[in-house]
Design a binder for these strands. Structure first.
Lengths: 183, 183
DNA sequence: ATGGAGTGTGAGTATGCACTCACTCACTGT
DNA sequence: ACAGTGAGTGAGTGCATACTCACACTCCAT
């Protein structure tokens, strides 16, 4: 900032802002494809300060990964809770929740990029832990059996890809096949 | 080459070798994550010659993408043909064919990386065309309806992710849920 | 045998990148 | 009032990366 009336923030608040901004830019081109300078610009801070907030690009990406799985888990738990309150099937409600996520796009794409960067051992580990938790949450909330769970997550992965190739912008039969929500 | 008895190849043959080598190294870290120097080294040629064979890194990646979808389509057609000859269900046989692909790993991972790089318009376009063709092939070979097709491709996407996080190396219930082949 | 087309390279260039350093400015407690 | 702490940055550093250029060697048609 160069304005004469600069207002300081706390590092913790800044970190949150950076994560939010990074989520958006990293969703587009992923870990290897997004320069830290772009993340800093999106967050409205200097690159130098970005590196004070997060020691390395990898560390930032790991936080982003964690946060991404948190969001998906939260979306599912909330959808299941609403469903139970309304006397509906939790698994179906969680399935519908994919549409909420699709509307956002960033979380879905970020998730895809965490898989793509999983060659890096620490990222792979974060992805595994994240998935372990997701499977656990969905199983607990829905009581679904293994086959149902597999289908549930399979459709989820498909939604990632649909988001990545922007199949919703394509008006052709094959795109409809991929998007038409499991019913 | 510096050996006194150098044997020249044709550019076309070299291109094939480069694609094979690139498939393997790019499968690990994707478009943005794999330097052209590494591809050249893997192919056993100089970086300079790599750029004579393919005008840009993007152009090489597009060829790789095309080739990747070709391979998947071929695997499916062959599996379906075998199934029909043995009087079995083509869709089931094509599902099994995912296991062949999983064994290779490179093709599945490369596919994942094409999705991850789909922010680049030309890659996105190649992915869309590739998918259009795959859906077409599977529909034609199996006669499956839209819902079945969606499930088929959903499980395919799940296999990509399973390959990326190497879920097969994890001995935990959630990993079994994801991998246990749809039955 | 030789010239021309085609295969192949060593040694660059220019830009991009993750990360650092030395510093300034805002706020807080005394 | 001012010292000390923490927020924040401009201007780098050094290395990696995509891509190029001038040149060498091989093969083959004549």
């Amino acid at each position: 900032m160069t304005s004469s009336r600069r207002v300081l923030s706390t590092a913790e608040a800044r970190r949150e802002e950076v994560i939010a901004a990074a989520r958006h830019v990293v969703a587009a081109r992923g870990y290897h494809g997004t320069p830290t300078a772009e993340i800093a610009r999106a967050a409205g801070i200097s690159q130098a300060y970005l590196f004070r907030l997060f020691p390395t690009k990898l560390e930032l990406f790991l936080v982003l990964t964690e946060d991404c799985f948190d969001r998906v888990a939260d979306t599912f738990t909330q959808a299941a809770a609403r469903a139970r309150a309304a006397g509906e099937e939790p698994l179906v409600a969680m399935g519908m929740a994919y549409e909420e996520l699709l509307a956002d796009r960033d979380v879905l794409l970020l998730q895809l990029h965490t898989y793509a960067a999983a060659d890096e051992p620490r990222i792979r580990n974060a992805v595994r832990r994240g998935y372990a938790r997701l499977v656990d949450v969905v199983r607990r909330e829905s009581g679904a059996d293994d086959a149902q769970l597999q289908m549930f997550f399979a459709v989820g992965m498909l939604m990632n890809v649909v988001a990545a190739m922007r199949a919703d912008e394509v008006d052709e039969p094959w795109a409809k096949v991929l998007m038409h929500q499991g019913k």
